[in-house]
Simulated assay, not measured.
Amino acid sequence: MEAIVFKQLEFVRKQTLKVLDGVKDHIAASIPDKFRNHILWQAGHIYLVQERFAFLIHGFDAELPESYKSLFAPGSAPASWTGTAPSLAEVTDLLRNQPQRIRQNLKGRLGESSPSPYTTSSGLTLETIGEFVNFSLYHEGMHFNAIKQYKALLTP
């Protein structure tokens, strides 16, 4: 089962990277009408949540730039940003390397109980490391879809 989770993690991420490929910085930083975030926020949010769900919640070291916690946190929006945001290329580089780091660090540990069980906003309680990683696939899929929609709205 573990191999399937890691395989799906890599597949989902490849799809996310494919949809981000070729997005120009001005498009990535444009907020479509009636939305509150942009493609850059979506990509950074995917990275942040994956770091939290794979590493931070369980007490493991993460590769997380300090500014990401405020820029890409749930409920945040570019309209309230006060610092300098990373470029889409910077976020994409982090996204590209993340699945391999997760596999390397969590191989053989997906069945372990998390020291901090978590109940999602939709009411699902995550109790093992594997449950967190597996749920992050659903989470990424939601934001992948938002990126696709934003691209369709913003690209001539």
Rank of each mutant, 00 (worst) to 15 (best):
A3L: 11
I4F: 06
I4H: 10
V5P: 04
V5T: 00
V12T: 15
V12P: 12
R13F: 13
V19G: 13
G22I: 12
I27H: 09
A28W: 02
A29T: 12
A29S: 13
S30F: 03
D33C: 08
R36T: 08
R36G: 07
I39G: 02
I39M: 06
I39S: 05
I39E: 04
W41N: 01
A43S: 06
L48F: 08
Q50V: 13
F53R: 01
A54F: 05
F55K: 07
L56Q: 03
I57K: 04
I57G: 04
H58T: 00
G59F: 08
G59S: 11
P65L: 06
P65T: 08
K69D: 02
G75L: 08
G75A: 04
S76Y: 00
A77L: 08
W81M: 06
T84P: 01
S87N: 07
A89I: 13
A89F: 00
V91D: 13
T92L: 11
T92A: 12
L95P: 14
R96D: 10
R96P: 10
I102Y: 07
I102G: 05
R103C: 09
L106Y: 06
K107S: 14
G111P: 12
P115E: 02
S116F: 09
T119P: 02
S121F: 13
G123A: 10
E127S: 15
N134I: 08
F135I: 07
S136N: 12
Y138D: 07
H139S: 05
H139Y: 03
G141C: 15
G141M: 14
F144H: 13
I147G: 14
I147V: 15
I147Q: 13
L153S: 10
L154G: 06
L154E: 05
